[in-house]
């Protein structure tokens, strides 16, 4: 079997927010590929630009935010009617964000599972109303048929009493059920890509496990790709095939999940992994933390953005230039001068 073509290729994406106080460079040149049927994890602390990058893919960046550079190449579903296999690649950054082409992609081919299930539904419309709306936007079906499909969806995400739940309002459901409803809505048009933006941060651990299991199961059944955004490395270890580690809008390290967890190269990835509690860690011993805090967005350090907090920072090197992303293994790459010197020596 030859390597499949990527579903989504992001190339050198840059997103900036022009505020009165100055320009915030939220995403500073990020590239990655997402393959069909794979779960792609994006990890990083709050404010590292992971959500913004995903909003850029969906073209949901709001003013004053703007995609200033880069390409987002999306392989469309075959358009030429049934039987057609002609797949077309579009550059999403060139589309009108509210134009009909982009609206035809959003929801139908790429769907969002938003961060907060509590607020993701309008409180004054029933859940059924909002899900049937999503179905009927992209599929020419009658309201009755739309409702039947919605019931099917609710069954597939394991929603008990699907009929009644469709007529409920979001605030009448528990967190876990709300999350299932959100997932059902995202799945409503059988998208090729699900973008899950921290889908488990707002729910408790038990629900989190259920949601993760559900997502994995659905992903296997439907062979969809998932981009899974989280700050929780434990979650990434459970679901992702490939991982991208972001810091201040830049890719620090990228690779298969095993490589990232067992042979992390970048000092930032290593520090993140050290700060996860494990069974082996000594009780009552404080967890190692990453010293310092994320710099203010207007105050980006020169050079590698991580160098002020990096234990292995090399003065005169790391604070002078920004390292390029370089391959360090078959599929693993890292942007750190530590490995560039090693290569130069070798």
């Amino acid at each position: 079997m030859n390597a499949p073509a990527p579903l989504l290729s992001v190339r050198n994406l840059k997103v900036q927010f022009a505020l009165d106080e100055g320009v915030v460079r939220a995403v500073e040149g990020v590239s990655f590929d997402v393959y069909p049927g794979k779960v792609f994890g994006i990890v990083g602390e709050s404010g590292c630009g992971k959500s913004v990058a995903m909003k850029a893919v969906l073209r949901l960046i709001e003013a004053p935010g703007r995609i200033v550079a880069g390409e987002i190449l999306w392989r469309r579903k075959p358009q030429g009617g049934p039987g057609s296999t002609q797949e077309e690649v579009v550059d999403v950054t060139r589309l009108d964000p509210n134009g009909s082409v982009m609206r035809g992609l959003r929801g139908a081919e790429m769907a969002l599972i938003p961060q907060e299930p509590m607020a993701a539904f309008s409180p004054v419309h029933t859940i059924g109303d909002q899900i049937v709306e999503a179905i009927r936007l992209h599929q020419a079906v009658s309201p009755r048929e739309g409702r039947r499909l919605a019931v099917e969806l609710f069954k597939s995400v394991g929603m008990p009493m699907p009929e009644q739940r469709l007529d409920a309002y979001s605030w009448q459901l528990s967190g876990g059920l709300r999350q299932r409803a959100i997932i059902a809505m995202a799945l409503s048009c059988n998208p090729r890509l699900l973008i899950a933006d921290e889908p488990t941060t707002a729910v408790d651990v038990t629900t989190q496990a259920q949601v993760l299991r559900l997502l994995r199961q659905l992903q296997q059944e439907r062979d969809a790709a998932i981009i899974f955004i989280t700050h929780d490395l434990g979650v990434i270890a459970q679901v992702a095939h490939d991982v991208l580690v972001m810091y201040l809008g830049l890719v620090m390290e990228q690779g298969p999940v095993n490589a990232i967890f067992h042979a992390p190269k970048h000092p930032y990835t290593q520090a993140l992994l050290r700060s996860i509690p494990t069974v082996q860690s000594t009780p009552r011993e404080p967890l190692p933390t990453i010293s310092g805090s994320i710099p203010h967005p207007f105050n980006r350090p020169r050079g590698c953005p991580f160098h002020p907090r990096c234990p292995q920072s090399m003065p005169g090197r790391c604070d002078a230039a920004t390292p390029e992303l370089q391959a360090v293994g078959p599929d693993q790459s890292v942007s750190c001068f530590l490995y560039q010197t090693a290569e130069a020596k070798a």
Partner: peptide, 21 residues
């Protein structure tokens, strides 16, 4: 509010979305 983003992510046109939600 997040529900506006959700509605946009569905592919709803801006005017319909604004008036409905």
């Amino acid at each position: 509010k997040p529900y506006v983003v959700t509605a946009r992510a569905k592919g709803l046109s801006e005017w319909r979305l604004v008036l409905k939600y």
